[in-house]
Amino acid sequence: MTALDSRVAAPPDPAPDAEPRGGRRAAAARHGRDNRTAYLMIAPMVVLLGIFVFWPLANSVYLSTFKISFYQEPEFVGLDFYQYVLESPRFWESIVVGLYYAVLTVPTGIVIALLLASFIKTLSRRLASYMKVTVYLPAVVSTVVASVLFVFMYQDEGVINWMLSLLNHGPVNWLNDPSYALPAVAVPGIWLSFGVTTLILLAGLLDIPENYYESAQLDGAGFFQRLFKITIPLLKNVLLYLLVTGFTLAIQLFELPLIMTNGGPVDATTTPNLYIFNSFRDLTPYATSFSLTASLMLFVVLGAISLVIFKLVNSDKAIDG
């Protein structure tokens, strides 16, 4: 955040002679007025964030040190729940599922997006804008709709098994087979998100000076040589950004498996957030404290990753140009 801060281009105070009434007092009076105006302007945001973000966060931290159940008074237990979470195999299993999902979706999504963006870049203006809208289309579809739609396509008699039958395969029971369920959830995950990735990569590609490619072509470099020698190194920052943000988002995945599989079969699609969400609704005693603590532990992990993002994004464009 401090790095972001440094980008605040503070408007310089006007030179004293620009002040009609001149003198320091007028400037001080204006500063006072600006102060009041600024606080009035940020007040709604500050208050809303205080009530609906910071207070709940503080409360989560506070409550995670108590044993809460319907039958007894809350009892202070310190960091006990943190230990329980760390020792819970299901918590770690859900993290493994989350990592597996991220590995399935993030690199695939970026590769697809990079190929698409390189292709769109070669098109004429009109075709390019058509393609941009087309690839972005799934991004406006809701996760609920995508989940229901893909469950429908994954049915035994559904369109995906029909396509497989053309290749003399299947039918595969996609969502009920533990080894296929997570990849089956990953497909709509990629479908929903690759459009945004493509447009970001396209913006990055358009920033690379065209003459780099021209001289490479004169030297006889083929498509893949240009890709690996020019495009990828020059897009390093963008790719890192997409990789890390994609990763944090993927680990937080939750609505798709909630609607498509509710975590099954045998927890094969129970991502960390789904695990936490389902333990909120669990009726066993202390489930509340447990899931609160688990969500905070995940927050620590994600916070660390987010810090890495900002370090990377602001690590300056060492290779640019």
Partner: peptide, 20 residues
């Protein structure tokens, strides 16, 4: 206040879902 207003970008929804 700048840091205060930007921090929520890094707070995952799940960490505050129940307390919200």
């Amino acid at each position: 206040w700048w840091v205060y207003c930007l921090t929520p970008m890094f707070i995952p929804a799940m960490a505050i879902l129940l307390t919200s």
